[in-house]
Design a protein around this nucleic acid. Structure first.
Length: 477
RNA sequence: GCCCCCAUCGUCUAGAGGCCUAGGACACAGCCCUUUCAAGGCUGCGGCGGGGAUUCGAAUUCCCCUGGGGGCACCA
């Protein structure tokens, strides 16, 4: 068998979205699994919607995900001559013809057909134009499009690796436009010439392309090309079961990057959208490459579930070492405007350690650790429920005194002393620790208390305990 | 309107005629652990869209219906 060659061919009209990323991933996994070649091709023949920024954004997201390509990125606009050459061949062999109908005329006829409840198909008005008539059109300055002559009889069979055999009646296909009036090829034509030129062996793409496939197969035949294998992946849907789009929330890969999702997590989650391997849920990258195959791809569409992605991201965050996590956390802290220079590397490693199993997205660190970096307002509810309890000022005062003593300010040591204090007062641990938590963090929820106190440092801790006592005094007056 | 695809818990899925009293994961609920929140453990809730047919036996095969999705552009 020939060496496997696949491609991901996005149109640069926006960022890389979840669906595109999934298609890219499946192509990539397929190529890596078979030791083949993965190609990136930019389908930029829609001049009004393609942008340079979009190309960069897509490339950036591909890199972030780690979906490296072996060839490309190629751009269709770089090889217009090649399409013209092939279009010319079809024109000469009578398998394509020039059409001078304007978009306006076509629209009119289409509407008329629709009103009569007839199915619209191009009426081949220009198929039988005489040379004289063509000349007249040219003299009028009309630029023709090139249409593919689509046989009316017979059927075209797509042997799809995912969907199985799908049969299309040729009679339902019309003479679609291959080359626009401005000389730029349309999708169906360009994709065929490119996949042939690039020796693509397997076309793996979304199943919204399934109904285009018979047109393309007809083109392959007309051009004398070998037909590649096709694999049409089921769509990714939003919660309302319609095709996933911006309406459903974040669909840009870069948004997930910004929110602190790990590439590994997104890859793992995406792999499970339309593909499965028994009961397994968590897959390392190497494992995915080893286990991925088209046979495991399902036929039915899948609803994108952000909650599961988030859970999975937490799984991968917990797999990180303290140093790795600390490194990843810093940009998010910095972005939130926190003064990173307040602490040293050891401190950040410790922060990573104590927040790791509480994080589900890296961006979550901001809400979890803000009190380490700046003053805060006590949550009114926390003050009411915890600080204003009977005897709290006295407890806090004792804690303050305990922590002011001279000893190494580490969580173990802090815990030892505070527990001794609890023992001594005979109070329930919770009655001591919750007020302390609120006093130093301002809230009822925080990372583990003793580690938090350690990270805060003696001075800040003592200062905040004093402040809390003061606040309670003020309130009770 | 025409063409095509799809159909197992709310969601992702396992299931290739008896192993299914339909399994796992997320979500949800409860319990345990516990100084909070998490993490973790345990338990629970919850599904084969409907109707025919084939078969000793169907989630699994076939047909119809219904439902959902996609396509029918000088978009890709």
């Amino acid at each position: 068998m020939d060496k496997i060659r696949v491609r991901f061919a996005p149109s640069p009209t926006g960022y890389l979205h979840i669906g595109g990323a999934r298609t890219a991933l499946f192509n990539w996994l397929f190529s890596r699994h078979h030791g083949g070649v993965f190609i990136l091709r930019i389908e930029d023949t829609d001049r009004s919607r393609s942008t340079e920024e979009a190309i960069q954004a897509i490339i950036e997201s591909m890199r972030w995900l780690g979906l490296n390509w072996d060839e490309g990125p190629f751009r269709q606009m770089d090889k217009l001559d090649r399409y013209h050459e092939e279009a010319e061949r079809l024109l000469n062999s009578g398998k394509a013809y020039k059409c001078y109908c304007t978009p306006e005329e076509l629209e009119e006829r289409r509407k008329a057909a629709l009103e009569k409840k007839e199915t619209w198909k191009y009426d081949r008005r220009c198929l039988t134009l005489t040379d004289q008539e063509k000349l007249t059109c040219e003299l009028e300055g009309k630029k023709p499009v090139i249409r593919f002559y689509c046989p009316n009889e017979g059927e075209t069979v797509v042997d799809d690796l995912v969907k199985g055999q799908v049969i299309f009646e040729n009679a339902n296909l019309d003479d679609f436009i291959m080359v626009r009036a401005d000389g730029i090829p349309t999708y169906n034509f360009a994709v065929v010439v490119d996949d042939y030129d690039m020796n693509i062996t397997h076309v793996i793409r979304g199943d919204d392309h399934l109904s285009n496939t018979p047109r393309q197969i007809l083109l392959y035949r007309a051009l004398g090309y070998k037909i590649p294998e096709f694999a049409h992946l089921p769509m990714i849907l939003g919660p309302d079961k319609t095709r996933l789009s911006k309406r459903h929330g974040a669909t840009a890969v870069e948004t997930y990057q910004d929110e602190g999702y790990l590439p590994k997590a997104l890859i793992n989650y995406l792999a499970l959208l339309g593909w499965g391997y028994g009961d397994q849920t968590i897959f390392g990258l190497d494992e995915l490459i080893q286990k991925f195959n088209l046979a495991g791809v399902g036929k039915s569409p899948a609803v994108f579930d952000p909650a599961k992605l988030e859970w999975m991201n937490g799984v991968y965050i917990r797999e990180l070492s303290d140093d790795e996590l600390a490194l990843l956390l810093k940009p998010f802290l910095k972005n939130a405007g926190f003064a990173l220079e307040m602490y040293d590397d050891g401190w950040y490693r410790r922060l990573a350690e104590v927040t790791q199993e509480r994080l589900t997205k890296l961006s979550g660190i901001v809400g979890l650790s803000g009190f380490f970096f700046h003053r805060f307002e006590y949550q009114p509810e926390a003050v009411e429920k915890v600080l204003k309890k009977e005897g709290v000022p006295e407890i806090l005062q004792k804690v303050l005194e305990t922590l002011s003593g001279s000893f190494d300010f580490y969580s173990d040591e802090i815990e030892k002393r505070l527990r001794a204090l609890v023992e001594q007062t005979g109070l329930k641990p919770k009655l001591v620790f919750q007020p302390v938590r609120v006093a130093v963090t301002g809230r009822t929820v925080s990372p583990p208390l003793f580690e938090t106190i350690e990270l805060l440092g003696r001075d800040t801790t003592v200062e905040r305990l004093g402040e809390a006592i003061h606040i309670i005094d003020m309130a009770s007056d």
